[in-house]
Each structure stands twice: as structure tokens, then as C-alpha cells.
Design a protein around this nucleic acid. Structure first.
Lengths: 191, 191
DNA sequence: CCAGGTTGGCTAAGTAGGTTAGCTTTACGG
DNA sequence: CCGTAAAGCTAACCTACTTAGCCAACCTGG
């Protein structure tokens, strides 16, 4: 039996590729093993099981997303940064339909890289909002609002929840523009 | 073998209850059958399988949500209606953590009740936005924006994606208030 | 250069969930 | 009160995940 030479990184990377092809929920250890040219139980030498693989995939995708959000915003500020980051967010979700859902898994506290990736992602959003002069509780609320809007749109779009795919770009731009306006006069109520 | 006297409605209703208790993804035909006091394959006399059950559950939950959204908005208009509907939306998702995810499934075109429920739900949102003077493409964009914001928040909240659950009410109210402001000056860009 | 030990691969076997086939028996309508 | 539609059953099989335990390939040190 010739060795294939896998390690955890190659396994998780291939899982990401496979997920993008067949969909997050169709990612299966059996398919992954056959793709890697190995019998299914061999995967257990590299990942502790299906749940652990999903967690590692989440760490990978979250790190990628954080990086793309960060670099989209670099050198910009205000509405400019917001639009660039929002476009990068949706773009990532569409280019990686299998990885994106993994980013919604809450980071495994025992995996420092995962935790760091999560912090980097929300940190990128936080930084953009600081450009609007938002800090403290206001920044927390605004971050949650922005994450909600972006994730909600992207999730509904991916699920086909908007019916006909026509004019989705325009709808998204309106949504982002409306958040821009809101952030300029945040907080929007004194509650 | 005494008959239990099931029919499709009782099966789907019990599935909804079970889903709320154990979670949407933990809903299993085996658990449902044992809950109904029946052997697993007997369920196939009432639903065509696990996928069909999920679809019927979606129809049920969508209809419930549509009804609650509609009655929250009745007799109100503008920001008042928006806030009432938004509260009803989040409230439904929290009271029914197992049914809510089912509402995101796109309606089965071959199930008239399901289709009607979906139309009623987005119709309720549409009606509130007409109170802002929005029609045509603007109303489409605004509806998508509102659905994105509400679903995004509720999904992230349910997933524990916001970290500590502190001050979530305040964050939600800010989000809704910001949408209210945006809708008053919609469209928000001429793109 | 070969002798270990480590480890990556394997097969076999078991669990859980879903599905189909086909039988039995209840319950109801004529 | 008989015949039949259908509600329930058991048995069997498929896919997916997991664990146990074996074997061989690779690396390292003597």
C-alpha cells in the first residue's frame, strides 16, 4: 500500500474544495476519502471525525474571509471602505458556496487559530465602523447590524430565497447604501 | 396492532413540536416515530420521506410566521408597523427554534398551500413598506433588505454568533430603527 | 545499512438514520 | 357481515460515520 502522504492541512484544504463543488451539506467523509485516493477510515489519522473536520473547515474559511475583508478595506475609509468590504463579503460567499456556510460556525475555543480568525473577521468590520466615529456600545450594535445585513442577504441569495435572481446586485447595493446612511447618524435611537 | 390514527397533519404537527425541542437538524424520523408511538416505516404511510417531511414542516412554519407577521402589523403603519412586525419576527424565531430554520426552505412549487404561505409572508412585509410609499423596484429592494436584516440577525443570534448574549435587544432595536430611517428616504442611492 | 519504532494506510465490524418490499389486520362502506 | 383500502408491522438493505486492530512503509540511530 503506497502512502499518499496526507496531513491535516491537505485533508482540510481538499474538504474545502469539495464543499465548494458539491455544497456544504453534501460534504461527506466518504466522498472526501475517495477524492484523496484513500479508504475512508484513513482520514481518522488526520482529523478526529466529521465534526472536527467541519470545525477545521470553519477555521480555514473564516481565516480566508477575514483576510479578504481586511484587504478590501485597506486604504479606504467611510462609505468607500464599507462598500468595498460588503462587496468582498458577498463575493467570497459566491465564489465559495461550500466554505461560506462554514464561517457561521462559532469558533472552537480550543483552537487558537480559529479564535484568532474570528476575531480578525469581526475586527475588520469593527475597524471600518470606527471610520464612522463609532466606538463602545454603538460600535457593537453597528457591527451586529452590519453582520446581520450582509449574512442575511448572502444566505437568502444562496438559498434562492429571493425568487428570480434578477437585479440582485442593485438590491444589494441599496442595502449597503442604507447601512452607510444609518452609520452616519448612529445611534439611530436613544433606546 | 391497535391503530394510532395518524394522518399527515398530526405527523407534521408533532414534527414541528419535536423540532422545537431538539433542534431542526436533530429532527429525525426515528425520534418522531417513537414519539408518535409507531414504528419508523409506518411514517411512510403519511409522508413520502424525510425530505418531504421537511418541506411540509416548512409550509407549516411559513404559514404560522406569515400569520403572526400579518397580525402584528394590522392596525399600524410606518415605523410602528415595522417595529411590531420585526418584534413578531424575532419572537417567532425564538419561540420556535426548530421551526424557524424550516421557513428558509424555498416553497415547494407543487404545494399550493406552501406557495400561498410564502406569498403571504413576503406580502406582509411588502404591505408595511407600501406604508412608506414604496412600490415597484424600490419595494422589491426594500423587502429584500428588510428580510436580510431580520433573518441575518435572528440566524446569528440563534447560532450564538454574537458572542455574549448581552444587550441583544438593544442591538436589534437599533437595527430596526436604522431600517426605518432608510425606508423613509428610499431609494438610498440612484444606482 | 539494517533494526527499530512511529505512523499512515488498510480491512472488518458496529451504530444510526433512511428507505423499500411485502405481509397482516383493522376499520369502514356497501 | 363481507370485502377492500389503508394503517400498521417486520425484515432487509443502503449510506454515512466510527472504532478496533492489523500491516507495511518510512525514518532514524546505531
Amino acid at each position: 500500500m503506497p502512502r499518499v502522504g496526507l496531513n491535516q492541512q491537505t485533508v482540510v484544504r481538499e474538504a474545502a474544495r469539495l464543499a465548494d463543488e458539491v455544497g456544504y451539506h453534501q460534504l461527506t467523509l466518504a466522498a472526501l476519502a475517495s477524492r484523496l485516493g484513500v479508504a475512508l477510515p484513513s482520514l481518522y489519522k488526520h482529523v478526529r471525525g466529521a465534526d472536527a473536520l467541519a470545525q477545521k473547515l470553519s477555521a480555514l474559511a473564516t481565516a480566508e474571509l477575514a483576510t479578504e475583508l481586511t484587504s478590501a478595506a485597506v486604504g479606504r475609509s467611510g462609505g468607500d471602505a464599507l462598500r468595498a468590504m460588503a462587496d468582498a463579503y458577498r463575493d467570497y460567499a459566491r465564489r465559495h458556496p461550500g466554505r461560506y456556510p462554514a464561517t457561521q460556525q462559532v469558533p472552537d475555543p480550543t483552537d487558537p487559530e480559529h479564535v484568532e480568525a474570528g476575531e480578525r473577521a469581526v475586527g475588520a468590520i469593527f475597524a471600518v465602523l470606527r471610520g464612522y466615529g463609532l466606538t463602545g456600545d454603538d460600535a457593537v450594535d453597528a457591527t451586529r447590524a452590519l453582520r446581520s445585513a450582509l449574512h442575511g442577504f448572502v444566505a437568502l441569495e444562496a438559498a434562492g430565497g429571493f425568487g428570480l435572481p434578477r437585479e440582485l446586485d442593485r438590491s444589494y447595493h441599496q442595502l449597503v447604501a442604507s447601512m452607510d446612511i444609518s452609520f452616519r447618524s448612529w445611534p439611530v435611537t436613544d433606546a
